[in-house]
């Protein structure tokens, strides 16, 4: 049945995640979830509420506060016949699991000459403006996107979140899945029933002809807001979401930039050495002869995320800032 003909429902981003997990838990007895307060509490974000009631504590496992060990155990369990989904509450804590992900999970298949596989998913969060200060607000997906052997998904809508998470669980490789914690309550249309979304396929969230805005996760809504404002002054912006940073759908990004001749890349990770840098260079390289302006990058300000709301709000790209940048690139003053 094609997607268009399916009955659609409005559900939240968090519900989409939960549905994907529940469907995969039902479909494959090897899938299990391990993390801190994932069972009765359903995580502090309540995203997993109800799963322990259906699948029991053997498959929805509350762990001690031991991020490195549960991740490493995920690696070992994945190698030996299970499909672990490791829950790391705040994306900031991926620093605690870096050896297990970077030196172990990511390299296992290659180092073993293709003999071992690590089909695991590490779900975690990202996103600022929750007033949670420097150790609970970062978007660290670029750190993981740096590592050959990992895959990194960074969905922006409930629809994408569900389809990508199901793909992640079925993938034969370690996948890191970043969910913006500020989007859990955002609603979107999701079809009834089964579907998956392939990795490495960008999605045009709004077609346009004057400028390309490449945006990820929370920044897609920001880009769409900016596109609305740009339309009011007669500029047509195309918003395109790569959906996975690794693999990256370079071709789609390049094609969009070739079509519009201008590009901005917006992402909530730190701007320096960030996802925006990689994508901007892909576009600059691939669309060089078609570009009428330098490719611009907008990321989180290069500072630890401050607590004070007045300061924190300055650190994240805003609709207005993206609008201003786009206007300038299009030669409007």
């Amino acid at each position: 049945m094609s997607m268009q003909n399916r009955p659609m429902r409005e559900i939240t981003f968090g519900e989409a995640i939960r549905e994907a997990l529940a469907e995969e838990l039902r479909r494959d007895p090897r899938v299990f979830i391990i993390g801190e307060d994932v069972a009765e509490a359903g995580t502090p974000f309540k995203v997993l509420s109800g799963l322990v009631q259906e699948f029991g504590p053997e498959r929805i496992m509350d762990s001690p506060i031991s991020e490195a060990a549960i991740t490493g155990m995920g690696v070992g369990a994945a190698m030996t016949g299970m499909r672990p989904v490791v829950d790391i509450m705040f994306g900031d804590f991926v620093t605690l699991v870096m050896d297990q992900m970077v030196n172990q999970a990511a390299k296992m298949h290659y180092m073993s000459g293709g003999s071992w596989k690590v089909p695991m998913v590490l779900r975690t969060t990202m996103g600022a403006t929750r007033r949670s200060a420097a150790q609970h607000s970062q978007s660290l997906h670029a750190l993981l996107s740096h590592i050959p052997g990992l895959k990194v998904a960074i969905p922006s809508t409930p629809y994408d979140a569900k389809g990508l998470l199901k793909t992640a669980i079925r993938d034969e490789n370690p996948v890191v899945f970043f969910e913006d914690k500020m989007m859990y309550r955002n609603k979107g249309l999701v079809p009834e029933g089964e579907y998956t979304i392939p990795f490495g396929v960008a999605d045009v969230k709004r077609p346009g002809s004057d400028i390309t805005i490449v945006a990820t996760s929370s920044m897609v809504a920001v880009a769409l807001g900016a596109a609305d404002k740009l339309a009011e002054i007669g500029l047509s912006a195309e918003v395109i979401d790569p959906r996975t940073t690794l693999p990256l759908d370079k071709e789609a990004l390049i094609q969009s930039a070739k079509k519009t001749s201008r590009a901005i890349v917006v992402d909530e990770g730190y701007e320096q050495y960030g996802v925006t840098a990689e994508i901007a260079s892909v576009i600059a390289d691939g669309a060089f002869y078609y570009l009428d302006a330098p490719v611009k990058r907008m990321g989180a300000m290069n500072v630890p995320i401050p607590f004070s709301p007045v300061l924190e709000d300055l650190t994240v790209p805003t609709e207005q800032a993206v609008f201003d940048m786009a206007k300038t690139l299009c030669g409007r003053v």
Binding site: I65, D92, F93, L96, R131, S132, A133, A134, Q135, H136, P304, P306, F307, S308, V310, L311
Partner: peptide, 23 residues
Amino acid sequence: GKGGSMHIADPQSGNLGANAIVG
């Protein structure tokens, strides 16, 4: 104003800092 509830630090009173990472 940069730290908030989970990061109070104060050299004057020998407080090396509160930490939001468990352990």
